[in-house]
Design a binder for these strands. Structure first.
Lengths: 308, 308
DNA sequence: TTGAAAGCGGTACCAT
DNA sequence: ATGGTACCGCTTTCAA
């Protein structure tokens, strides 16, 4: 009889299965700024893991906070998904409790909270590494260029990287100058804005000998500004980015590599664990960041005047 | 009484709705090479449209043909989705018929077939435009650099672009030299492979004065090869890419812009039309491609010897 | 307008 | 092992 079932090539209807079992066999992934290469990288990691599980990936992307809240709430209440992954966005208390009540596990990626499993990268360490690397090359006039320190999405990688920068400077007994710290008002890694910011920094006297940009896209802006000012990158101005995205490779940009896809993979795996019944909160802050040495950072030029 | 329902903040259970209505309110999007920036751009367009509809986006990504076939078949037979969008992959006859039988509409993106709605870009026209632009700058030794002419996924944008290249040359009454046409064996736009190919092209005598690369990533490889040979791009070698992706912007690469997100949006809209009952097949080949003039193409240098 | 009942296609439990 | 049955929660139809 079972053989007959095989023969007939029977495939159960998903909707019926879902209703009967109370499960959906799918996972909702919420990602803002879908366009950002870093988001994509994390998503790729998630996709890899889910592809090998028997959960489907339901993609929710939005650039608007309100839409995100509404959508998350609705998706959870309708029980459209068995679990939720949220990238780079804080989850409001209300929503977290709702998910808890509905027994839908949540894993946050790139944002940390005590109440939910969170997986991300140690941005502060990354900021520190970048700054220490510049210091090791002899730079002392190091500027920081980032976007916003407080994002409406309740989380700012820029700020964490900035804290690492500040820490490295203080460890080196160097005073941090506020003039050397540039934040844009826009919560995105826009090149255009970064060009403007870089021009402002380079117009200071003395100008910085090195700039740490909080993202590769912004570093690209710094490179562009340098070009516009006919500054030889490397020799006259060192630039380090953050992320090691494709563009860093193409621009020969020295940068900080972070395990983006790995973070995505781990996040997805943690969620699968929860789906298997694991209740305890898991927290992981990856610290295997590293400097990728390419062409945009060189030792500070030996200015002869310093010898006298 | 209805008011009471409002009050109680009632939300229907999706699984039950699905079972009862026979719908899933979700759309399966199949995309190979999820990593490719061009795929992402199309996906963004799709996402935009679906986000405004009441369909969810189920993402299926794979780099393996067999997995893709199995997954597509299973998803359709389980009726996990109401409609299917396939990006840059041919759909086997068997699968197409299966979807037809199950009344699950299909829209193909970037691949054209007579049996299903298809939306894409006129790659041949793009190839022609790129070549004509180089010709207009006075170039006559124009090489073509691409990946594969026949992809296992049953579709090669490279080949179409190559046909456009060939056509433009013949229209200009220029003979096409096979030596000037380089195809890699790898079905991906790899920079590394392109570097090798570019070196081969540039070692020819006479070397080409311009290279048309079938993708921006491959153009980046050409740029790199030129750098390695200390060739001044623009002055000694002109390079045009295809796609106008982020890297083109960052590399100041002259390239062909194609409406990627628009293709995605249109594809999604066409699918929604089908879901609303429209049965007739829709075919659209976007032809609003254009040359984006940046720094890597300059008029062919006036070699004095040609005057004598 | 409102209410009752059948059916969607499975799962799971119980009895045979 | 096998068959029968209740139930998942909604939609739809038909009656009241």
């Amino acid at each position: 009889m079972l053989a007959a079932i095989e023969q007939l090539d029977y495939i159960p209807n998903t909707a019926a299965q879902n209703l009967s079992s109370g499960q959906t066999r799918s996972i909702g992934v919420f990602v803002p700024h879908f366009t950002r290469p870093s988001s994509i990288q994390r998503l790729i990691g998630i996709q890899e893991v889910l592809n090998d599980s028997d959960y489907d990936l339901l993609l929710f992307s939005t650039n608007s906070l309100e839409k995100y809240y509404v959508q998350l709430r609705q998706v959870v209440r309708q029980h459209r998904v068995d679990g939720v992954l949220v990238i780079s966005m804080a989850v409001p208390e209300e929503h977290r409790l709702l998910m808890e009540r509905m027994d839908i596990p949540l894993v946050q990626i790139e944002v940390f909270s005590d109440y939910a499993s969170s997986v991300g990268v140690d941005n502060t360490l990354g900021g520190q590494l970048a700054t220490e690397y510049l210091l090791a090359q002899g730079h002392e006039q190091i500027a920081f260029l980032g976007d916003v320190r407080e994002s409406p999405f309740g989380f700012s990688a820029t700020n964490e990287r900035f804290i690492g920068y500040r820490y490295a400077l203080s460890e080196a007994n160097l005073a941090m100058s506020d003039d050397y710290c540039s934040f844009s008002g826009i919560s995105d890694h826009h090149k255009e804005e970064a060009i403007r910011q870089a021009h402002d920094l380079l117009a200071l006297s003395p100008p910085p000998t090195a700039i740490f940009a909080a993202s590769d896209q912004q570093a690209a802006g710094v490179l562009e500004a340098a070009r516009q000012r006919a500054l030889l990158v490397g020799d006259q101005l060192s630039v380090i980015g953050f992320g090691d995205l494709d563009i860093a490779h193409y621009l020969n940009l020295t940068t900080i590599r972070q395990p983006l896809a790995e973070v995505g993979r781990t996040g997805a795996n943690v969620l699968l664990q929860h789906l298997r019944g694991e209740r305890s909160i898991y927290q992981k802050r990856f610290n295997d960041l590293e400097v990728i040495e390419r062409g945009t950072v060189k030792p500070v030029p030996c200015d002869d005047s310093t010898f006298f």
